[in-house]
Design a protein around this nucleic acid. Structure first.
Lengths: 142, 142
DNA sequence: CCACCTACTTATCATTTGATAAGCAAAATA
DNA sequence: TATTTTGCTTATCAAATGATAAGTAGGTGG
């Protein structure tokens, strides 16, 4: 296996992943939030509670801009902010009930589309997919 | 293999793919072009020649906005436009010499980072990665 | 030939996003 | 205790992006 050949394969592969991700997630976000806001909500949903700094790091967004978007999300009642009792500078962000519901709805739509995509896969196919993901996760996308 | 479990795994996986893609490609684009423009150039580089309509479809960009960005890229001498001899409405877009050079430079940087990432992988690892990509490409990200 | 459709362009406007400066309070450090 | 650093916020400006209307020229089918 030539490494440069593998690289070209990787390029094609990541392109496919991006394309399929887009197909699965398109229109999954409510109209009243922007893409950046949706990405932030996704991050919070998966790993709440998070601090603005963590969001800033993960989303490659400056802290001022992160702060601005979080403020907008708070005004929409999708997230809430709790001060850290140990460190008065830190803030912990989590979804509100309303935010949870909104994200649940999005995730469900995405999952439905995913299930639809693999509906014809056999049990063996699913096992293969599962193992392939493990390998790539461990050896390439760590 | 439970399908919902697999779905959660896929979510984590695509997140990793996006993160690593970002690591490999960050700052790969020249400063004087925007991300949207870079993505367009990448598409052209990989599948030239392409028509504005094709670019519009693949990049999920309206035709007017595609046209605007292509105009900017033409003004920067990175792409050129050739009319279709059979259908006077169509345009074929390809990279100029300068555009090719720019994209080559980007791709080389990305490849270097990729090689660096897999430098410790054994021959067996590479074969496994190769096969795993094939499986996912065929059964999930088609 | 005429109406309609396709491929693309130009123009314009609102919104989103990115970048930067300045400020504040809490915590760490000297 | 004075100074610096950290975590976050507010404000402001420029640039990028998205959406839409309107126009041109070439093609297609009646």
């Amino acid at each position: 296996m030539n490494k440069t050949t593998l690289f070209h394969k990787l390029v094609a592969f990541t392109t496919s992943v991006h394309r399929v991700t887009h197909e699965l997630t398109k229109d999954a976000k409510a109209d009243h939030i922007t893409s950046v806001q949706y990405n932030i909500l996704e991050l919070i949903a998966v790993s709440q509670p998070v601090t603005p700094s963590q969001i800033s790091d993960c989303q490659h967004l400056s802290l001022p801009n992160t702060s601005r978007e979080l403020k907008k999300l708070r005004e929409k009642n999708l997230i809430e902010k709790v001060g850290d009792p140990e460190d008065g500078r830190k803030q912990h962000i989590r979804l509100t009930k309303e935010g949870e519901q909104m994200m649940d709805k999005s995730f469900q739509l995405i999952e439905t589309r995913f299930l639809n995509r693999i509906q014809n896969a056999s049990k063996e196919d699913l096992d293969e997919i599962d193992q392939a993901i493990d390998i790539l996760q461990r050896k390439l996308f760590y």
